[in-house]
Design a protein around this nucleic acid. Structure first.
Length: 485
RNA sequence: GGCGCCAUCGUCAAGUGGUUAAGACACCGCCCUUUCACGGCGGGUUCAUGGGUUCGAAUCCCAUUGGCGUCACCA
């Protein structure tokens, strides 16, 4: 009999979606869906001091943007709720006490501050393990606050299985009597996790590799309850490149590293998801790199997961983003790009469609849009060396020679004919007549009008966007500074 | 520091004892081109080091080194 695969994503509501967390959610979702299983969203808000208002809505919105759809969770329904830990308080207390009854845990009445200084067993005192019954009774009668700690074996070792890493063994003496129930009555993350994962029938636990060391504590807990231990899959961390060339776990200091930041920076949610999926996972059977969510689900397999850390690479993300941009239809691109273009003078606003079409295949990020067209608003000052191009045999001298004639030619073009096609035809005639290289004339014109070495679009495209008056002003100005030399 | 995890081009990576060690990004060169981009073609001392095992090792074992993580009443 096959049990349904159930995975979960269990973020704490911190107010932003770190890219590493998004990846964990994605893999959990992909695995569940690839196995026709369920993906559960659970909110881990047991740390009251960290609570951020609206964070839950934020998480839900982000998942929605990323096209990760929970089958169960707060607001999604499901038979194992509530899916917010702060609403499950009584459950944890009940199970913690069950463990005390069984002798697998004990009450500790020690003062946390005092113990921290003592430190013989870390931040706690194991003597509470053996408190006589009457002492415990007295503490309880006095209403003394306490925590419940898990009683770890003092010798031997604990082994658990991880899909990626195989069996991992840790000596029990390395394990401390971790707190299960805090002084404020809230469960710790480690405890609530075990309870909820069991109660919610989670079969596969995907989480960051930073939990490897604490996993034996989990398995000991499952065993103490007599529960089946789920399958663990510890994911390698996502790293960021530091300025000095070293790498460390991806964090805010590496720049835009939350899903939200990346979207703001002009990366499409689909492209981010696509890239993140590939950061630590490989389909193996194909060299395909552009995947829709459906294709990811189809291709996803656990053995494609990498156990070594991956460095987040903005270049690759940019390439993937560019691929999505190129595939997009014109109208959609225009709509998406408009907010990134900034305030535009009327003549550019009028040509926005043309502009968008020119930029569509050239952009890597939407946020580069404004910068790419800035030269159309203010002509940059430029060096005469821009007129040098060996391929087309362009030199500043040639430019000085050709420009006056081309300006004269363009002066004659009526406003109505100031279009890309008409200008191109006109200039072609000129080029044929002079028997010069097309690239030569176009280069000179483009540089003189744009003042920029690399431009979106060729000479006539730029002239047509600029308009007759503006174009001629620019050309004359460029000629003047060329003559002044 | 103890313990644990990891180690193939700059980056993502395929590879599970015999390969000319894939592919992609980035980079460089060439072609195409009305510049750039797109597209096409091509390029690069990549298996951390040292020992084993083996006829044969990127693949298996050990050590070293390095990176990362973990040692909370945070998650």
């Amino acid at each position: 009999m096959n049990t349904t695969v159930r995975t979960r994503f269990a973020p704490s509501p911190t107010g932003y979606m770190h890219i590493g967390n998004l990846r964990t959610a994605l893999y959990g979702y992909l695995y569940a869906k690839s196995q026709k299983g369920d993906f559960v969203l659970r909110i881990e808000d047991t740390d009251r001091s960290r609570y951020v208002a609206d964070a839950v809505d934020f998480i839900k919105r982000t998942l929605e943007l990323a096209h990760i759809v929970p089958d169960e969770g707060p607001g999604f329904g499901g038979d194992y709720g509530p899916y917010v830990q702060s609403e499950r308080m009584d459950l944890y207390k009940k199970y913690a006490e069950e463990l005390v009854e069984k002798g697998a845990a004990y009450r500790c009445f020690c003062d946390p501050d005092e113990n921290h200084a003592a430190g013989e067993f870390g931040g706690y005192d194991r003597t509470c393990r053996d408190l006589p019954a009457d002492v415990i009774e007295k503490h309880l009668a006095d209403g003394d606050p306490y925590v419940i700690r898990q009683k770890m074996p003092l010798s031997g070792e604990t082994t658990f299985f991880d899909v990626l890493h195989g069996n991992i063994t840790i000596k029990n003496e390395e394990l401390e009597d971790q707190v299960l129930l805090k002084r404020d009555g809230m469960p710790t993350y480690n405890f609530a996790n075990v309870i909820d994962d069991h109660l919610m029938k989670i079969t596969h636990i995907m989480r960051g590799a930073e939990f490897i060391t604490s996993t034996p504590k989990y398995t000991l807990l499952y065993e103490a309850f007599g529960w089946e231990v789920p399958t663990f899959i510890h994911l390698a961390p996502v790293m960021g490149k530091n300025e000095d060339g070293t790498v460390s776990k991806l964090s805010k200091r590496h720049g835009a590293t939350s899903f939200e930041d990346l979207v703001k920076a002009g990366y499409l949610p689909e492209a981010i998801t696509n890239y993140v999926a590939l950061l630590g996972w490989n389909p193996k059977t194909t060299n395909q790199e552009i995947f829709s969510m459906e294709e990811l689900i189809e291709a996803f397999r656990l053995d494609g997961l990498s156990k070594s850390p991956a460095v987040f690479d903005y270049d690759k993300l940019g390439w993937i983003n560019g691929e999505y941009l190129k595939k997009m239809d014109e109208a959609e691109f225009e709509k998406l790009a408009r907010p990134f273009a900034g305030d535009l003078p009327d003549y550019l606003e009028a040509h926005f469609g043309t502009l968008a079409a020119l930029l569509k295949t050239r952009l890597t990020r939407l946020s580069d849009f404004a910068g790419e067209i800035a030269f159309l608003i203010d002509q940059p000052a430029f060096d005469a060396s821009f007129y040098e191009n060996k391929r087309n045999k362009v030199t500043p001298e040639k430019a000085k020679e050709l420009l006056p004639d081309m300006i004269a030619l363009l002066e004659e073009v009526p406003e109505a004919d100031w279009t890309n096609d008409a200008l191109y035809a006109k200039l072609n005639d000129f080029i044929a007549e002079r028997e010069i290289k097309k690239g030569l004339a176009m280069w000179v014109l483009r540089i003189a009008a744009a003042g920029k070495l690399v431009t979106p679009g060729g000479a006539t495209e730029i002239l047509s966007i600029l308009g007759k008056k503006n174009s001629l002003e620019r050309l004359k100005k460029s000629l003047a500074s060329l003559s002044a030399m």
